[in-house]
Simulated scan of single mutants.
Amino acid sequence: MSKVVIFGNSGSGKSTLAKQLALHDDLAHLDLDTIAWKPTTPPERLPITESSTLLYDFLITHNNWVIEGCYADLLALVIEQADEIIFLNLPVSSCIKNAKARPWEPHKYESKAAQDANLAMLVNWISQYADRADTFSKVAHEKLYHDFKGKKRMHFSNK
């Protein structure tokens, strides 16, 4: 396994799994959150052209990688280069539980308090997964999974 794409709802365990694979298989790790947003409050998406440039820069720099995120639009740009995809298709209740137990993510938040202040919004966001029809939705992730012709796995729990 040298090029892996992991996707699913917020709180599904994408970052945790990606970190484990990166460490175990010596893969470069890209969390798409780091290239998808402007550093503004409230958050605003970068134009897809800017995010895609950053994504391609990562691909040029690394031969072996794991890329994870919930952005079907960005994942579509790289998925055909993957050796394997992993869809973390957990129940919404599990994603909410994971989000509430999530350790501080210093690459996303200036403090644990700032992260916790965002928790209610995140839980609401997670709960809308099956109802949305956007790039972050279950339907968009199911399409990515269905259309991919290579090696793929779907997990319904973090076990």
Rank of each mutant, 00 (worst) to 15 (best):
M1Q: 07
K3S: 13
I6K: 03
I6F: 04
F7M: 11
S12Y: 06
K14V: 11
T16Y: 14
T16H: 13
L17R: 01
A18Q: 12
L21Q: 09
A22Y: 12
L23S: 10
L23N: 03
H24M: 02
H24I: 00
D25M: 02
D26E: 05
A28I: 06
H29A: 00
T34W: 00
I35V: 13
I35H: 07
A36Q: 09
W37T: 02
W37K: 10
K38T: 04
P39H: 01
T41W: 01
T41Y: 03
T41P: 05
P42R: 01
P42F: 09
P43T: 05
E44T: 05
R45G: 03
L46A: 06
T49M: 08
T49H: 00
T53Y: 01
T53E: 04
L55T: 08
Y56M: 09
I60K: 11
T61A: 14
N63R: 11
N64V: 06
N64Q: 02
N64K: 04
W65G: 02
I67W: 05
E68W: 01
G69H: 09
G69V: 07
C70W: 01
Y71K: 02
A72Q: 04
A72N: 00
L74E: 07
L74P: 00
L74V: 05
L74M: 04
L75N: 07
L75R: 07
L75K: 11
A76P: 04
A76F: 08
L77E: 15
V78I: 10
Q81L: 15
Q81V: 10
A82F: 10
A82E: 11
A82R: 00
E84A: 02
L90D: 13
V92C: 14
S93T: 11
K100Y: 14
K100W: 01
K100E: 14
A101I: 07
A101E: 15
A101H: 13
P103H: 09
P103L: 08
P103E: 11
P103W: 04
P103C: 12
W104L: 10
W104Q: 07
E105C: 08
E105N: 14
H107G: 12
H107Q: 15
Y109G: 13
S111D: 06
A113D: 14
A114K: 12
A114P: 04
A114N: 12
D116K: 13
A117L: 13
L119E: 03
A120C: 01
L122C: 11
W125T: 01
I126L: 03
S127H: 02
Q128W: 03
A130D: 15
A133C: 02
A133E: 10
A133V: 04
A133T: 11
D134Q: 00
F136W: 12
S137T: 12
K138L: 09
A140D: 06
E142I: 01
K143T: 08
Y145N: 00
F148A: 10
F148H: 00
K149N: 01
K149E: 07
G150W: 06
G150R: 04
K152V: 13
K152S: 10
R153T: 15
R153A: 08
H155Q: 15
F156R: 15
F156K: 15
N158A: 04
